[in-house]
Design a protein around this nucleic acid. Structure first.
Length: 206
DNA sequence: CGTTCGATGCACT
DNA sequence: GTGCATCGAACGT
């Protein structure tokens, strides 16, 4: 079953927790790719210095201020498309960043897309458990781009489904790769899962 | 094992 | 002009 809009119209930390184990699906003419969410981070409101809404409303962060249950996709470091699920009500800008998936469907397509990354040059694709490890990697593997910004997640080509699977126990830790707001433990992941990112930040991962 | 650093585009100041 | 919610290669220990 596809998660309804109301799923996202809740406190962001609850949504982040409940997104773990859900299936992110992207359908394109060239094929479908999907994976179970095993790592996510919450970005909550204008008072969260790491949230893109910390600067107040701008053209880029407009989706954060819109209705819950939509995608917020932006380009980071000039190279990587980051995908968020917008949470909470209109006017309360917050979202959950999807950071890692366990690949489930469309593995061949994922391998092809990852191998095509400019910085991989002659190398082939990474091992399967690394295909969607990291926020930039998973968008590349699924073919998610800026064209998917603002897309509704309860219908259409980019959706999140409840498959009622148990992926393991959860662990909370500080968010990764940010310079501010590190005091909040707003990153949640499946403890010890091999597709979870962030080895160099060493922390939990149980 | 660890740390450094280049690639690369654009929103924000 | 500055600085990213990154990736992975290159190098040092």
């Amino acid at each position: 079953m596809i998660l309804p809009r109301d799923f996202y119209d809740r406190p962001t930390l609850d949504v982040a927790r409940d997104l773990i184990g859900k299936l992110l699906v992207h359908r394109l003419p060239e094929g479908t790719a999907a994976g179970l969410i095993v790592e996510a981070e919450a970005y909550i409101g204008e008072d969260d210095p790491a949230c893109h809404a910390a600067t107040g409303p701008t053209e880029r962060n407009a989706p954060l201020y819109g209705p819950p249950g939509r995608a917020y996709v932006y380009l980071n470091y000039g190279l990587h498309d980051m995908m968020n699920a917008v949470t909470e009500r209109d006017g309360h800008p917050s979202a959950v960043l999807i950071r890692a998936l366990e690949p489930v469907e469309g593995l061949a397509l994922m391998r092809r897309r990852r191998a095509r990354a400019p910085w991989r040059k002659g190398k082939g694709p990474p091992p399967d458990h690394d295909l969607c490890r990291g926020p930039g990697n998973l968008t590349r593997a699924l073919g998610i781009t800026l064209a998917d910004n603002c897309r509704t997640l309860s219908r259409g080509q980019l959706t999140i489904h409840d498959r009622d699977v148990n992926v393991g126990s959860l662990a909370w830790s500080p968010r990764i790769g940010i310079r501010v707001g590190t005091e909040h433990h707003w990153r949640v992941a499946v403890a010890g899962h091999r597709s979870v990112s962030g080895q160099k930040w060493k922390r939990e991962n149980e």
